[in-house]
Write a protein that binds this DNA or RNA. Structure first.
Lengths: 146, 146
DNA sequence: GCCCTAATTGAGAAACTTTCTCAATTGTAT
DNA sequence: ATACAATTGAGAAAGTTTCTCAATTAGGGC
């Protein structure tokens, strides 16, 4: 079917799929596009709703499968919200941490990572080899501080 | 029914419940005890299994309800594991961050918080008022590094 | 452009997780 | 000891995620 939507860098994305022997299907493109166009995190049901606007017949199972694939390809990240629910967002390029505005649900990426220094210090102090970390900040953005 | 288990500081806990007009039931005590005696995080089903050893007839719904109550009382925290599943642990006293060993699932609390300085800096830089943060570290503990 | 093949999809069933309902029970204050 | 409101157990209900399988489709080779 080829290129269905005007995703920013379609050829790059196609290549990422093909490098792993995966097909660049319209459903996967649609899921990615929905996330790229969203300002914040989206729940599965919102993703499904938006994907169906682009591609009416898309099933829920396909959304789950596409997200799984996109996560494997590091194009998407799964995030945990405060209430324990899951949502999804496009993976930030490089190492970043998201700041979620608890009022408007907008997301601002933060590039400075306090863990780089801390990880080394921690390994020295405790002997634990830090392999990964998960940091998420919650706050109120400028617009919502009225 | 009164005191069923020798929880460290039974009277303190009883008072925490009563202060909020809640009953100190054996089911709630059992859920708390199971978490206090665990080295790491526990999933709902593991909590249920362990609680039933102390209190055979306990229903799953009660475990959910007890956890909800214990979280409200700040005695327990809900945590997010890497795969997106939920688990529960006793709330660390004071401000701490858990380090999860990905091999043995043990948890080591870390008291130093890099966020205190960072939050202020961040508010100054971006204007976002940081209200809360979620930090979790994953690594390999000493015993598992063989 | 047209096959061929393996990957992918849609639809619904199935499995699993969490919440709800309600009669019966049980802490706690009096 | 009694009364009352909070809590519980059991199963139903609701919600979420995964599975199954026949039908479809993307992509490579001709």
């Amino acid at each position: 079917m080829g290129k269905l939507f005007s995703i920013n860098n379609y050829n790059e994305i196609k290549e990422i799929f093909h490098d792993k022997g995966l097909k660049c299907t319209p459903q996967r493109q649609a899921v990615l596009k929905v996330l790229q166009e969203s300002k914040g995190y989206l729940s599965i049901s919102k993703i499904h709703r938006n994907v169906k606007e682009l591609l009416p017949g898309t099933g829920l199972a396909t959304v789950y499968r596409s997200l799984e694939t996109l996560i494997e390809l590091n194009l998407v990240v799964k995030v945990h919200l405060e209430d324990g629910c899951h949502s999804y967002a496009v993976a930030p390029k490089g190492h970043r941490h998201p700041i979620v505005c608890t009022d408007c649900n907008r997301v601002i990426d933060y590039t400075e990572c306090p863990m780089e220094d801390l990880s080394k210090k921690l390994t020295k102090d405790t002997g634990i080899l830090i392999q990964n970390h998960f940091l998420q900040l919650f706050g109120t953005c400028k617009q919502c501080q009225t």
